[in-house]
């Protein structure tokens, strides 16, 4: 009898775990989940050169209040031809996407969009070159 009770409890437990994970979130045009999260910020920024190594002198400074990112590239870096990468808060997305060759001789703008797609914050990324 005790055995039967434990099995039943186990099955009910699994079902309880499955119910929330099966909840249908809508997806956007790119197939990414639109969730309930409203947080909207960039947490890390990185810049790689053609040799796939960082070109930054030190970690970029991110101000999530003014929505600005400032970074300094090493002396001699060709900042016309670098690949940016960043980390965002959970479920947020970035427009346009990073990871492509980008010219950072002028400040570049990227928009962070929250998981629920209701909050948008435009970040301005400024990269200066060491020695200039």
């Amino acid at each position: 009898m005790n055995m039967k009770k434990s099995v039943l409890t186990g099955i009910l437990g699994v079902i309880c775990l499955l119910i929330p994970s099966c909840k249908d979130y809508p997806v956007d045009d790119d197939g990414r989940l639109i969730t309930t999260r409203g947080q909207c910020y960039m947490s890390m920024f990185e810049l790689l050169g053609p040799d796939n190594r960082t070109v930054l002198v030190s970690a970029a400074t991110i101000d999530t209040v003014t929505c600005t990112v400032t970074a300094t590239a090493k002396f001699g870096t060709n900042i016309k031809h670098v690949k940016p990468y960043c980390s965002l808060v959970t479920d947020a997305i970035l427009e346009p996407e990073m990871g492509v060759w980008t010219d950072f001789t002028q400040p570049c703008k990227y928009t962070v969009v929250s998981g629920n797609r209701k909050i948008r914050k435009e970040y301005t990324i400024t990269v200066s070159l060491q020695g200039e």
């Binding site: 053609p50 002396f75 001699g76 060709n78 031809h81 060759w101």
Partner: peptide, 13 residues
């Protein structure tokens, strides 16, 4: 989009 110089080489680069 390349430059015309390259700095700070070490072995195997």
């Amino acid at each position: 989009a390349a430059t015309d110089f390259a700095l700070n080489f070490v072995n195997d680069e």
